[in-house]
Amino acid sequence: MSKSPGIVYCRCAYAQVVADEVKDGVIKGLCASGRSFDAVSDLCEMSARKDPRLGAIARQDNVRIAACHPRAVKWLFHAAGVPLDDARTEIVNMREENAATATAKLLEDDDC
């Protein structure tokens, strides 16, 4: 049995560039799944403060991050001094996907 990936959800609360219906839909989907997960108010804000919790996310064996454009997320972590490992990280783009697709990607193969 493989370990389920960790899930991190970014609320983008400081600038609202992710559509409300997407981020609200994803959070509802995650809450309905019964899975444990981490949720942060805003990854940009954490990167600006070089929050050590970003390091904890980057060090996870396998993590899915629901946020915005993958190129931006990748280099936000790098800017905070804790680069993500591309091989162990999947970024789900809530600026491009709808809520159902984004949630499905986060929970995909969850029962394996």
């Binding site: 609320r11 609360a13 609200d24 959070i27 509802k28 995650l30 809450c31 309905a32 019964g34 899975r35 444990s36 997960f37 981490d38 949720a39 942060v40 108010s41 805003d42 804000e45 050590p52 919790r53 390091g55 904890a56």
Partner: peptide, 27 residues
């Protein structure tokens, strides 16, 4: 659960929804 979580995040709190396991993290 989802309404409480969204309200906390919108106020700036980092939040973990936890079923079981350790709740304290090294960071």
């Amino acid at each position: 659960r989802s309404v409480v979580l969204a309200a906390l995040l919108d106020k700036g709190y980092a939040t973990t929804v936890a079923g079981k396991g350790a709740i304290v993290r090294d960071n």
